[in-house]
């Protein structure tokens, strides 16, 4: 089988694109990072890719709220292609700043009439630490995970706030939760320990933590105490679904 192509769009200030590309490559896909200008002027088209993955970073310096301006770009310059990709059932992934941007576009959580946002961390500061994520299977990305994922977070605005968390929970939209116990296990104070959410189809996954930074065994800070690299299956699942 040929390797599915992953479109990784980057704006000024995107900085975890190489990490994301590395994870998808390892998972058997063929990632390509594409400057947002190339989407704007049509040099690259989503129709030629099987997966869309929006990477982390500080697009436009987080000006006016993290992910807001990248979200504006995606809708303004790329909105039709985005809707086509959703309609075609292509796996879509947004991590950290990419998650923030997908929430700004309304694709995530995607329940009409309910606004969501990623607010400043409860600690009021940037947090870089390893967390444990308990998966639930309502998304193609997480359906086959057999153990909690461990990976770092690195963000200042990751507190998931939903206008209707109960509704989101009832439809199984929350597919990754921080291990409980409050701060620092839940590094940003998200109600319900929400770390990652999916849309109603289960094809779109957005999350604040960085599973792309735990796909090699040597990335594990518990070196020697665990096998390591345990986030790779998440990417393999997305690649299989493409």
């Amino acid at each position: 089988m040929s390797r599915p192509k992953v479109l990784i769009p980057i704006a000024l200030g995107t900085n975890r694109d190489a990490d994301l590309a590395d994870a998808f490559r390892l998972a058997g896909a063929d990632p390509e990072t594409v400057p947002i200008a190339d989407l704007r002027n049509g040099v690259r088209q989503m129709a030629d890719y099987q997966i869309l993955a929006v990477p982390g970073g500080f697009s436009y310096g987080d000006a006016l709220g993290a992910g807001r301006l990248l979200g504006l770009d995606l809708i303004g310059w790329f909105g039709d292609q985005l809707r086509d990709a959703v309609a075609a059932g292509k796996p879509i992934f947004g991590v950290c700043n990419g998650f923030q941007a997908l929430v700004r576009t309304g694709l995530l959580p995607g329940d009409s009439g309910t606004a969501s946002t990623l607010a400043e961390n409860e600690s009021e500061r940037f947090e870089c630490r390893w967390v444990t994520l308990n998966p639930s299977p309502a998304s193609v990305w997480t359906a086959e995970l057999t153990e909690p994922l461990r990976c770092p977070v690195a963000h200042g605005e990751g507190q998931f706030v939903s206008g209707n968390l109960q509704g989101l929970t009832e439809r199984d939209g929350v597919v990754l939760r921080y291990s409980s116990g409050g701060y620092p296990n839940n590094p940003n104070g998200s109600a319900g320990d929400v770390a990652g959410v999916t849309d109603a189809t289960g094809m779109i996954l957005g999350l604040m933590p960085h599973p792309e930074n735990h796909v090699h065994s040597w990335q594990d800070p518990l070196r020697g105490r665990t096998p390591g690299g345990n986030c790779l299956p998440l990417f393999q699942a997305g690649v299989r679904a493409a």
Partner: peptide
């Protein structure tokens, strides 16, 4: 202080400034 600095990006970090089972 160290937790407010991203020491994970680029995915190459092997020994972090703070480690052990509780980091």
């Amino acid at each position: 202080v160290v937790r407010t600095f991203d020491h994970e990006i680029m995915g190459g970090t092997v020994v972090r400034p703070y480690g052990g089972p509780h980091g």
